[in-house]
């Protein structure tokens, strides 16, 4: 077991633990915070796997923007600060399907890879990654920017307060 393996194991345990708490805790705000921990651990994982750009993009966007948005949403929907009892529905179906999928995938992957070894590539892949993005993957890149624009416009349209008020009036009349 090399140092990389130890780090991967530790960070993986942290991620899984934090993820379990995200889906199990009774505190809404704490769920968001445990999500930060989980995503941070994953960023660490990426660093170990020499994917620096992905790691820092993960921190910037996922931890920095997405989780912040989720916490904003939690606040705007008047989530209670303390524990709430009505957050969950009966868990047997969830456990069945969730457990089944998780464990099944794990079994599949263990069966595929066993205890094999792989050499990590050299560090400093950001420049090479940039080369790939802007050479082979430039079209999907541009399409993604259009998609982001569409999502932006959509989110703005959905969030306009006057549309909400008009629909509320019509909803009330119905």
């Amino acid at each position: 077991m090399t140092g990389a393996d130890v780090l991967l194991l530790a960070l993986g345990a942290v991620a899984v633990g934090a993820g379990a708490l995200v889906v199990a805790t009774r505190h809404l705000v704490r769920a968001g915070l445990w999500l930060v921990v989980c995503l941070g651990a994953l960023a660490g994982d990426y660093l170990v796997l020499t994917a620096e750009l992905v790691a820092w993009v993960q921190v910037l966007i996922y931890v920095g923007a997405v989780v912040v948005l989720l916490l904003f949403a939690v606040m705007l929907t008047r989530a209670p600060i303390g524990p709430s009892d009505d957050l969950d529905r009966p868990g047997w179906a969830a456990a069945l399907v969730g457990g089944g999928s998780g464990l099944g995938l794990a079994v599949l992957l263990i069966d595929a890879f066993r205890w094999s070894r792989v050499d990590l590539p050299a560090a400093g892949t950001a420049e090479r990654l940039g080369e790939q993005v802007f050479r082979s993957w430039v079209l999907p890149f541009e399409v993604l920017s259009v998609l982001l624009l569409a999502a932006l416009v959509g989110a703005i349209v959905l969030s306009r307060p006057d549309i909400g008020r008009r629909s509320a009036d019509e909803g009330g009349r119905q």
């Binding site: 991967l8 899984v16 379990a20 889906v23 989980c38 969730g98 999928s101 998780g102 464990l103």
Partner: peptide
Amino acid sequence: TAALLFGLGVY
């Protein structure tokens, strides 16, 4: 790790 996280997400 990824498999377990996926299962937790489905759950």
